[in-house]
Amino acid sequence: MHIEFEEEEDTLMEVQEMAWYKESKAEETPGGNLRFYRRLAHMNQTELGSKLGISKQFVSNMENGIKPISRAMALKLGSLFDVPAGRFI
Rank of each mutant, 00 (worst) to 15 (best):
E27F: 03
A74C: 08
F5S: 09
F88P: 01
S55N: 14
V83K: 11
L80G: 02
M1D: 14
F88L: 11
M73Y: 00
K56M: 14
R71P: 01
A41W: 07
R87F: 12
I66L: 15
N61F: 08
L77E: 02
I54G: 01
R71K: 12
G31A: 13
L34Q: 00
Y37K: 09
N33W: 01
M43D: 01
I3K: 15
S79I: 03
A26G: 02
R87M: 12
M1C: 12
E8C: 03
V83E: 04
S55W: 10
A19D: 13
Q45I: 07
K67P: 00
S70T: 15
M43I: 02
G53M: 12
R35I: 08
G65S: 11
H42T: 07
R87V: 05
P30L: 05
S55C: 13
N44D: 15
D82H: 11
I54Q: 01
P30C: 05
M13P: 00
F58N: 11
M18R: 15
I89C: 03
D82L: 08
F58R: 10
K56S: 09
R39W: 05
E4V: 09
L12A: 06
N33Q: 12
S24G: 00
N64I: 07
I3R: 14
Y37Q: 08
P84V: 03
A26S: 09
P68T: 11
E6Q: 13
L52Y: 01
A72I: 13
Y37D: 02
G53E: 11
S50L: 12
I69Y: 01
P68N: 13
Y37M: 10
N33Y: 06
L75H: 06
I89L: 13
D82Y: 04
G31E: 02
N33G: 01
G65L: 11
S60N: 15
M18P: 00
T29D: 06
A72S: 14
R38E: 06
Q16W: 05
A85W: 03
R87D: 06
F58V: 15
K25Y: 02
A19L: 12
S79L: 08
A26N: 07
L77A: 08
L12N: 04
N33M: 09
D10R: 08
I69R: 01
R39C: 03
V83A: 05
R71S: 12
V15M: 11
A72Q: 13
T11D: 04
E47Y: 04
L12I: 08
L75T: 09
L75K: 11
A72R: 10
